[in-house]
Amino acid sequence: MIPFAWYLLIAAALFCIGLFGVLTRRSAIGILLGLEFMLNAVNINFLAFWRAGTMQAMSGAVFSVIIFAVAAAEVAVGLAIIISVYRSRRTVVVAEISDLKE
């Protein structure tokens, strides 16, 4: 009996918090943390929508499962990269890894 809107709002808020983390963190791992929150928020959203409907179409749930898998895979790879970068440059501070600068 929880209002559907509350779920969505929670998801939205969480998403924004995660976004804040991504934009603000110095460390690459810190960014990854924020990213995980964003993914979670998306997941909640999907499931809330799926649950609010008839649940006949399984696509909502299926997609949510896939998101879980993808998030895990992404974290693994991302951390591998960060560790690799750490090895060569001895830093995980994003600002110092600024090869995109002109």
């Binding site: 995980e36 693994a76 560790i83 001895r90």
Partner: peptide, 25 residues
């Protein structure tokens, strides 16, 4: 998945990139 795999992985990564533990954000 999230706690068991991802969070653990992150913790390991943090420990592996040790210097960031001492650093002030």
């Amino acid at each position: 998945i999230y706690i068991g795999a991802i969070a653990v992985l992150i913790l390991f990564a943090i420990m592996l990139t040790r210097r960031s533990m001492q650093e002030q954000e």
